[in-house]
């Protein structure tokens, strides 16, 4: 059982309310398409940065829910943030990992290291308030409102289906300038929305 990035993000969109969402990698494209908002901040191009940014935002904005839509390989790059998040224990943080066991998903679909790793078990061991594996969009829709209402930090390991990879005839992508300005532009927009611009 699994869900697509878009199915997961559609559920998150329905439930997010005024939540700040830090996103990265394949979740970035899905949440941007499904739930565009000035309250979204992409960690791009910065693999691994989402969980740290989400923690910082959760500390600075304790009255708002903060969701981190992490990648599995991204979280692996910065596993230490799980220890940090558990130490600080921000009650308003929900850390989700979009777990498809791949690197460059939808492109090369390369296997990532740690294929036997149980992220939810790691989160529990680190000291998150709760941690679970969710296999379907319906299950995500069922548990997410309760997690927002319950003091966290919470961790969700989402079973994400692997998208098709590039075929040999697929044009190779060139990243536009916008990709490199995106994080700064979104940070500026989020600060405007929060009234923290200076």
């Amino acid at each position: 059982m699994s869900m697509t990035n878009y199915e997961a993000c559609a559920v998150i969109h329905q439930i997010r309310g005024e939540a700040l969402i830090v996103n990265t990698m394949s979740a970035m494209f899905a949440i941007t398409a499904v739930s565009p908002s000035a309250l979204n901040l992409s960690s791009v191009p910065l693999m691994g940065g989402a969980s740290g940014m989400g923690l910082g935002l959760a500390i600075a904005q304790p009255a708002r829910p903060v969701m981190v839509l992490d990648g599995d390989a991204s979280l692996l790059m910065e596993l230490g943030t799980m220890a940090q998040i558990a130490d600080v224990a921000p009650a308003n943080l929900i850390h989700m990992v979009f777990n498809n066991n791949l690197q460059f998903s939808g492109a090369a679909n390369l296997e990532r290291p740690g294929r036997k790793l149980d992220f939810a078990a790691m989160a529990r061991a680190a000291g998150y308030a709760s941690a679970q594996r969710i296999e379907t969009a319906a299950d995500l829709a069922q548990i997410l409102p309760g997690l927002i209402a319950t003091p966290g930090p919470h961790f969700i390991d989402l079973a994400i289906a692997a998208p098709p990879k590039f075929a040999h005839r697929t044009p190779q992508p060139e990243f536009p300038d916008l990709q490199f300005q995106r994080m700064g532009a979104e940070a500026a927009k989020m600060m405007e929305a929060l009234g923290t611009t200076r």
Binding site: M53, L55, T196
Partner: peptide, 21 residues
């Protein structure tokens, strides 16, 4: 905030800054 690695110190600080700290 004590961090496990320097990347996390920078990204956490960025989140704090965007959030108004």
């Amino acid at each position: 905030v004590e961090c496990a690695a320097e990347n996390q110190a920078l990204t956490c600080a960025m989140g704090m800054y965007v959030g108004g700290m």
